[in-house]
C-alpha cells in the first residue's frame, strides 16, 4: 500500500502548515489546525491560502 503524499500550505494567520490529503480546488475552504482560522484556497499550483471572507448578507442555503 502506498502512502499518499500530503500537500501542505502555510496558514496566513499563524504560519502553521495546513495539510490536504488530496489536491485542493480553487475556492476550497479549510481550517487551520493550529489557530482555527477559516481559510480559502486562492491558488492551487502552488497551493496558497488566504483568510476566508466573512459571511455576506446574501449568503446562505
Amino acid at each position: 500500500m502506498s502512502i499518499a503524499s500530503t500537500i501542505t500550505a502555510a496558514c496566513p494567520e499563524c504560519d502553521a502548515p495546513v495539510a490536504f490529503d488530496r489536491a485542493p480546488l480553487n475556492g476550497q475552504i479549510a481550517r487551520c489546525p493550529d489557530c482555527s482560522a477559516e481559510l480559502e484556497v486562492t491558488s492551487t499550483n502552488p497551493v496558497t491560502l488566504e483568510l476566508a471572507p466573512e459571511v455576506e448578507e446574501d449568503w446562505g442555503e
Binding site: L25, N26, G27, Q28, I29, E40, V41, A52
Partner: peptide, 10 residues
C-alpha cells in the same frame, strides 16, 4: 458552479 468549495461541494 460555486463560489466557495465547502464540504457539500466536495
Amino acid at each position: 458552479t460555486y463560489t466557495r468549495l465547502r464540504a457539500e461541494e466536495r
